[in-house]
Design a binder for these strands. Structure first.
Lengths: 109, 109
DNA sequence: TTATTATATTGCAATATTACGATTAATGTT
DNA sequence: AACATTAATCGTAATATTGCAATATAATAA
């Protein structure tokens, strides 16, 4: 059906999946890495930086913004993007708790 | 097109996206959490534990196994699954490096 | 051998995602 | 006002994902 049955999972499980999903495309990974590298607002050059068409980048930015991981600020004709550090920290906390599970080294099978 | 242009991204960006993608579904998150909680091989009861049909669970397990995050061990008529701790640690390293980027608190926009 | 049990595979329908051309909207420039 | 620039939105085609019924496979039990 292509329709995820979110209702049978916990809120936390769905939240983890939503965050993970947004990282599940290399373009969005690249966008975020660029924003971290530049460490400032980036206006415009994301389309040049990543090799995808402008509407495609715009779509990826929308998803990142929708989850609150980046902020967009209108600056004249262009829009400047940067990491939303507060929300990034919140996301990180959730994801680290999930990833940081550990088991004794003894594999059972 | 629905076809991710992996060739324009770095290997690392694609690797991060692949790991993230597999976490991008709550059923797979739930399966992993269960395996960590039980802390042993789990035979059979994953279908009961998660509320999805057997073929669906089997498909999710296949994806997790394909990325090397879990192991399956045939035990009579059933198959027992557990976390592949080595590969989990490797994945964690990659993902932590990506998530653990930090910026000064001063938001630019 | 025949049945039983447990899991995998196949096939398919419904929905989601990715990508981009064309267009629109908003602002700045002349 | 007319034009230029930049980014968002719309529409659409191609592909991917999700979920499950039906079936196949594999091991054990009777």
């Amino acid at each position: 059906m292509g329709l995820t049955k979110t209702e049978i999972f916990t809120d936390l499980q769905n939240e983890i999946a939503l965050f993970a999903k947004v990282f599940g495309h290399p373009a969005r990974v690249a966008i975020l890495e660029h924003l971290f590298k530049i460490n400032a607002c980036v206006c415009g050059d994301l389309v040049n930086e990543i090799g995808l068409a402008q509407p495609t980048i715009s779509q990826h930015l929308k998803e990142l913004k929708h989850l609150g991981l980046i902020k967009g600020n209108v600056e004249g004709t262009s829009v400047c993007y940067c990491i939303n550090t507060e929300n990034w920290a919140k996301m990180k906390e959730v994801m680290l708790k999930f990833l940081d599970q550990d088991l004794p080294k003894t594999d059972c099978c």
